[in-house]
């Protein structure tokens, strides 16, 4: 088995649906029989565990514990696929951040060793025999997100179709190119329903000279359901679910070629 494909999911600003997209893509791949890990590095505002129905009060160890040297990284990994209804060979592991406010405050104040994060990611891939490792990053650019970007095989940049995101995405994209990330995909989320999605896709691809993996329309129904679970598992036939599926298939194809 080859090395796992590292996929960082990043956005310049918060609120782009980053955690949601990460959870959905990871779930789609697990459903295809892949072994998938998801690391929540958004320590300041963790949230992805909610989508997988993981109650942090019941978890003994988290990513923060690992960063402080209190446990091994694998001890902070929880299999959440089975409870989400994923059957077969696929596995879905979540390495949650911490939900305890005191821990969050402390680690944000003192910082942490990004190298230890990097080491942790690698151990995780080996020990859990992962095909994919998703990194749900903190919005914006800091040393930890730069590291996530630097180690990624694929960087998925999420943006909404507005001027602020266009500008910020341009910055992140240039930085990622300097770091020679092999594959950089853009994903436009929350496009107004009135938009001509294919025209928007073409325009964004042209502006950034980058591949646009998907353009997802703004959907009230999805927003309501998405806060309660993984949308593409709840509504597999929904057009948005199909879009995630397609992106996941393309990721899987690349992984098998690698």
């Amino acid at each position: 088995m080859g090395r796992a494909e590292i996929v960082s999911v990043h956005s310049f600003r918060g609120g782009t649906g980053k955690s949601n997209s990460t959870a959905n893509l990871a779930a789609c791949l697990a459903r295809m029989g892949k072994r998938v890990g998801v690391v929540d590095t958004d320590i300041a505002s963790p949230g992805i565990h909610v989508l997988f129905g993981l109650d942090l009060n019941e978890t003994e160890h988290t990513l923060v514990d690992y960063l402080w040297g209190r446990c091994e990284i694998a001890q902070a990994a929880y299999e959440v696929g089975a409870r989400a209804g994923i059957e077969g060979e696929g596995r879905l592991y979540l390495i949650p951040s911490s939900m305890r406010t005191s821990a969050i405050t402390q680690i944000l104040r003192e910082g942490y060793d990004v190298v230890r994060l990097d080491d942790g990611l690698r151990s995780l891939m080996d020990e859990l025999e992962l095909d994919f490792l998703f990194i749900d990053t903190h919005p914006g650019v800091n040393e930890e997100t730069l590291l996530s970007i630097a180690v990624s095989d694929t960087l998925l940049l999420l943006l909404r179709p507005d001027q602020q995101d266009y500008q910020g995405t341009g910055v992140t994209l240039e930085v990622a190119r300097m770091l020679e990330v092999p594959r950089i995909w853009l994903m436009v989320n929350k496009a107004p329903r009135s938009s001509d999605l294919s025209a928007l896709r073409a325009r964004v691809a042209e502006t950034y000279a980058a591949e646009v993996a998907a353009v997802l329309p703004h959907d009230e129904g999805m927003l309501t359901l998405a806060s309660a679970g993984v949308f593409c598992l709840l509504q597999p036939e929904h057009p948005i679910s199909r879009s995630f599926d397609e992106v996941a298939r393309r990721l899987a194809k690349r992984e098998s070629q690698a």
Binding site: Y112, D118, G168
Partner: peptide
Amino acid sequence: LRARGRSQPGQPSPSAGAKTKDEVDDGP
């Protein structure tokens, strides 16, 4: 760094010991 994961886990990372604070970086 990207290549390391395949063969040589445990190799030193850049700027070992560098700490980061989350103060500058939320972006606009």
